[in-house]
């Protein structure tokens, strides 16, 4: 039975070693990201082209990688909205895009056109509200967005004109490049002052944001 003890001990050692390696690696990534955040105007977490909200009195920057066609983004939207509404004086929310789906780019162009009218959040809200209809799997109908968006109180004629004129390719490609620098492949992904949100839950997001505000 001595063998079994050795085996169990080895097993434990492997598990502990693995967890230790994960912790060490994640801490090193976090500290590297915080250094990045401190230099060059917050790039690659913040870019001038990105939509951003909040007063940022406490210098806490929340970066969200988002895709309007992504279901998880839609599901998590009420949570980020709630946390951000509580702390919009203290923080700044920066939206970055990761257009991973078939019609993501189309939707992002619409969002950017709505941003011109200062109706960004309203438009995003509508996109998520009707996401099941326009982004149904294997049967997407992005053109339906034109029918839903008036509900956001947009000037549709202006939206159409802005949609046709805006060029978001450069923005999307820089956002994608920054995402890959940061190891982000999926949406939604959050960073708060460069610290990655590792669990998509209300509590985890709130804890991370508050830990940066009351630091």
């Amino acid at each position: 039975m001595k063998n079994k003890k050795v085996v169990i001990f080895t097993l434990l050692l492997l598990v502990v070693g693995f967890i230790a390696a994960i912790t060490v690696y994640q801490n090193s990534v976090d500290s590297k990201n915080q250094e990045l955040m401190a230099g060059k105007n917050g790039a690659p977490f913040v870019r001038n082209h990105s939509p951003s909200f909040g007063e940022n009195k406490d210098n806490v920057i929340i970066t969200e990688f988002l895709d309007p066609e992504c279901e998880a983004c839609s599901a998590f939207h009420p949570i980020i909205k709630e946390v951000f509404n509580d702390y919009k004086l203290e923080t700044k929310l920066v939206i970055r895009y990761l257009a991973n789906h078939q019609n993501s780019k189309f939707a992002v162009r619409l969002l950017e056109a709505a941003r011109v009218q200062n109706k960004y959040n309203e438009a995003l809200e509508i996109m998520f509200k009707y996401q099941e209809k326009w982004a149904k799997h294997h049967n997407t109908k992005p053109e339906l967005l034109w029918e839903f968006l008036p509900e956001a109180g947009l000037d549709m004629a202006k939206l159409k004109a802005d949609f046709e004129n805006n060029d978001i390719d450069e923005m999307l490609s820089l956002d994608r490049k920054d995402a890959s620098t940061l190891g982000v492949r999926g949406t939604p992904s959050f960073f708060v002052n460069g610290k990655k949100l590792r669990e998509l839950s209300h509590k985890a997001l709130l804890d991370l944001v508050e830990s940066e505000i009351y630091k």
């Binding site: 085996v7 080895t10 492997l14 070693g17 693995f18 390696a21 994960i22 690696y25 994640q26 190891g183």
Partner: peptide
């Protein structure tokens, strides 16, 4: 067993953590 475990955990580290 050690070699196989390290290879397994290592590959998971590369894909899931990194």
């Amino acid at each position: 067993f050690l070699v196989a475990s390290v290879a397994t955990l290592g590959s998971l580290f590369f894909s899931e953590i990194m």
